[in-house]
Design a protein around this nucleic acid. Structure first.
Length: 823
RNA sequence: GCCGGAGUGGCGGAAUUGGCAGACGCACAGGACUUAAAAUCCUGCGAUCCUUACCGAUCGUACCGGUUCGACCCCGGUCUCCGGCACCA
């Protein structure tokens, strides 16, 4: 060990050591308790950013700690390597997406290794590798076989200029992010996964996820958006068809004064055909078609709509009510038809006001401030029914149940549940993704590729123009095949899968990454799953984390995994900002991990990022703060160096005696305890580090004192290195070997604290008068209440302060505090 | 609009969950070492007041109120900021 802390040399040295010794290789071992620590794998964009560094530093501390704590730790890393940027790079630079991606992965892998992350690199997976996407295709076919994958024509985002479908994320302010032209809707036949079949389980299971942040659970709950209500059928006057509405407020049905359909409602055109309403209705539908989602769903819009010339009949009042179409009703939710109750729904109120429709109050909240005959806005409050025939006086909550029963008896409706959650559109007109392993045959329709023929490989003879359909269509060979059922000539599906599918099961592939017979061996998955700790950005709170849960439930149903939920505990880390703003190229406040590692080393970068803020909070990057972390590591290094220089022989046996010894021993054991708790479960890395800093300060003080107990000091050095090692592994490995250890610090057991060292001989008691701090007393530990009270009352200071006062009461908390209440 | 979360020194953040508010670090100021600087070490560092100074006093965890011997912590209300959902019937 050098006199000076040369992080460059040290870090390379130990990274090579770990690699050569396969220090983090893991195999299944039934005799040991397992711990699966997982961080969200990155998209190989080319360079690591600080968000990655934070994410992986957190995971690394946990993984290293758990390993030292005796667990068999699985800590893998891989690449979410399919996706659009590779294709855009191909268009821009003329490189193949594959080349671009693999180059990036190599570069980022090197950066991850520079951070000294304890991964089992033998388990590395890349979703763009045929060994991976082969099983992705197999999984898709299992979905298909269970009836959970289907093809359907639906309106999707369409850029007329680029001639392609766009993902929702690629539509910015209603325009194509690449060419800026307005995005429209187009009906396309696309593949969907029936995630809605799992809506209830996805929702109900949230209750069991005790180890998840509440915030994420609520976000998923909102996203699933379950609402219970009823469907009710309305007859149409002089027309044979009926219309069914969905409502959560069937209790207000007597107040229904009109009906609205979504403009896309299938039978609207038929209903107006040949009437004077045909023209205006068509015009309105066309206008709505040209609106993007932002325009259409804005709540600030004034209500618009068109009367279609027909009347529905309210089944309860038998009154005729006019039927409109309006863009505020969405075809994709409920039935696409809504009963308009202006008195009790704000949207309906606005619509009715605009079109001069009746507003009939049917629920009286009994609130004197609400003038039911002169409403200025809809009244959504609970109350009793009025204007509701025989049901007047009934509580409206009861009426919800009652009316649902009534419509069911009449055979015109039933209680139903609706979800905001939609089926998952997984088709992408892209090249760089998993080919959907489906084949279209004239005779047999859509059939899956035979499982033994997988993978359906991505062809290499394709062009990337950024225009037209999927680049797969430009391949001379890809599309032509034969039907797996009848053998006739057939065509392959040209679309690829949404990359969110790839990332929905990678945690299972890590359990058995090289399996060529199956996606994974359930035995291995049963050993490792579920993930004990998952760590990643909160931006994945809904999509990724819900898709992965959906997949895992499906695998559970197939008997491929033993738990429904894949992630037992979840930690969502906060963003890394600079000067209070998100780091971004356009603002120019990006701090690159590369530079920091070059200037200060990986250990400093890791330490700072863990020390500067609790993991789930935002972290503001501070150059001065990094300096501070660097200074601390230098301080530790110097401490160890100086001690070993001065005391080449450290006795193994020693006794703790004298106040200085006791104080150091106390600090040492307190730090071990604190770090164990903070890293082991609370994930409060910042306070763990601060307790190590306190220990280091104490050791410096002790070292300069008299009567040095070399044995004790040596023990402190040893434990200090051990408890610091999960945070800053390189420097600790260096110091560990320097103090004469021959095994890697990563193979060591986590030190245990000695509870007796934490028992102080004397404790400080706070003396309060009327709750205000007045004095502090040093008394023997565990002094009993009565004696404590006596000692306190006898103290000069208290005596003086009590002059002329009457003591009403004395509250004593042993070993802590004493409060004298006076008048 | 609905649903969450948060508000503590100049800054990042602590506080065993009702018991010394401000640990640890950063910044700043003063000092030591040095020809000098860097590095390092030592001291101070919530506000106001009193005092020559030491000692001390009062206030202080967004704001107002409550419970309690005692409140950053519990309860009621208000404000601000952040996040999610949102014409979902």
């Amino acid at each position: 060990m050098n006199e000076r802390y040369n992080f460059n040399e040290i870090e390379k040295k130990w990274q090579n050591y770990w690699e050569e010794n396969h220090s983090f290789k893991t195999v299944e071992d039934e005799s040991k308790e397992k711990y699966y620590c997982l961080e969200m794998f990155p998209y190989p964009s080319g360079k690591l950013h600080m968000g990655h560094v934070r994410n992986y530093s957190i995971g690394d501390v946990i993984a290293r700690f758990k390993k030292m704590d005796g667990y068999n730790v699985l800590h893998p890393m891989g690449w979410d390597s399919f996706g659009l940027p590779a294709e855009n790079a191909a268009i821009k630079h003329g490189t193949h997406p594959s080349e671009w991606t693999w180059n990036n992965m190599a570069e980022m892998r090197a950066q991850l290794k520079e951070l000294g992350l304890a991964y089992d690199w033998d388990r590395e997976v890349a979703t763009c590798h045929e060994d991976y996407y082969r099983w992705m295709q197999w999984i898709f076919i299992q979905f298909y076989k269970k009836g959970l994958a289907y093809k359907k024509e639906n309106p999707v985002n369409w850029c007329p200029d680029c001639q392609t479908v766009l993902a929702n994320e690629q539509v910015v302010d209603g325009c194509c992010e690449r060419c800026k032209s307005p995005v429209g809707k187009k009906n396309l036949s696309q593949w969907y996964l029936k995630i809605t079949d799992y809506a209830d389980r996805l929702l109900d299971n949230l209750e069991t996820l005790d180890g998840w942040p509440n915030k994420v659970k609520i976000m998923q709950k909102n996203w699933i958006g379950k609402s219970t209500g009823a469907e009710v059928q309305f007859e149409i006057k002089d027309y044979e068809e009926t219309l069914t509405v969905f409502t959560t407020r069937v209790d207000t049905i007597y107040g229904t004064t009109y009906m609205v359909l979504a403009p896309e409602y299938p039978s609207v055109l038929k209903m107006v055909e040949g009437t004077e309403y045909e023209q205006p209705v068509k015009e309105y539908i066309e206008k709505v078609e040209h609106m993007n989602d932002i325009e259409r769903t804005s709540t600030t819009n004034e209500k618009t709509g068109v009367f279609i010339g027909k009347y529905a009949i309210n089944p309860f009042t038998k009154k005729e009510i006019p039927i409109y179409i309006s863009d505020y009703v969405l075809m994709g939710y409920g039935t696409g038809a809504v009963m308009g109750v202006p008195a009790h729904d704000q949207r309906d109120f606005e619509f009715a006001t605009k079109f001069g429709l009746d507003i009939i109050p049917v629920v009286d909240p009994g609130d004197p401030e609400v003038d039911l005959n002169n409403l200025t806005c809809a009244c959504a409050a609970e109350g009793t029914l009025i204007n509701s025939g025989e049901y007047n006086g009934m509580n409206n909550k009861e009426a919800i149940e009652k009316f649902a029963e009534v419509v069911e008896q009449w055979g015109i409706g039933k209680k139903t549940v609706n979800y905001r959650l939609r089926d998952w559109l997984i088709s992408r007109q892209r090249y760089w993704g998993t080919p959907i392993p489906m084949i279209y045959c004239e005779h047999c329709g859509w059939v899956p590729e035979k499982e033994e023929n997988l993978p359906v490989l991505l062809p290499t003879d394709v062009e990337f123009t950024g225009k037209g359909e999927s680049p797969l269509t430009t391949s001379a060979t890809f599309g032509k095949t034969t039907c797996p059922v009848c053998g006739a000539e057939a065509k392959r599906e040209m679309d690829t899968m949404d990359t969110f599918l790839d990332s929905s099961w990678y945690f299972l592939r890590y359990c058995d990454p090289k399996n060529s017979e199956a996606a994974w061996d359930p035995k291995k998955a049963n050993y490792w799953m579920n993930v004990d700790q998952y760590i990643g950005g909160v931006e994945h709170a809904i999509l990724h984390l819900m898709y992965a849960r959906f997949f895992n439930m499906f695998f559970y149903d197939l008997g491929l995994v033993k738990t429904e939920e894949p992630f037992k505990n979840l930690l969502t880390q906060g963003m890394v900002n600079k000067d209070g703003k998100k780091m971004s190229k356009s603002i120019g406040n990006v701090v690159s991990p590369e530079e920091i590692i070059k200037t200060y080393g990986a250990d400093t970068a890791r330490l700072f990022i863990l020390f500067a803020a609790p993991p789930d909070r935002e972290l503001d990057w501070s150059d001065a703060g990094v300096e501070g972390s660097y200074r601390f590591l230098n301080r530790v290094y110097r401490l160890v160096y100086e001690i070993t220089e001065k005391y080449p022989e450290i006795p193994a046996e020693f006794t703790v005696s004298g106040s200085a010894d006791k104080s150091l021993n106390y600090m040492l054991n307190a730090a071990i305890k604190k770090v164990s708790e903070d890293v082991g479960g609370k994930f409060s890395f910042n306070t763990a580090i601060s307790s190590i800093m306190e220990l280091v300060n104490e050791m410096y003080k002790y070292k300069e004192g008299e009567n040095i107990n070399v044995g004790l000091l040596g023990k402190a050095v040893k434990d200090l290195i051990l408890i610091l090692s999960p945070f800053t592994p390189h420097i600790c490995e260096e110091m560990w070997h320097h103090i004469g250890q021959t095994e890697s610090v990563t193979e060591m057991s986590w030190p245990e604290f000695d509870p007796s060292a934490l028992v102080k001989d004397e404790v400080e008691i706070v003396v309060q008068i009327n709750g205000k701090l007045k004095d502090k007393l040093s008394v023997p530990n565990n002094m009993d209440k009565a004696e404590l009270e006596k000692v306190a009352m006898d103290s000069e200071k208290v005596q003086a302060l009590l002059e002329g006062k009457t003591v009403v009461k004395v509250v004593v908390v042993p070993n802590k505090l004493l409060n004298i209440v006076v008048k």
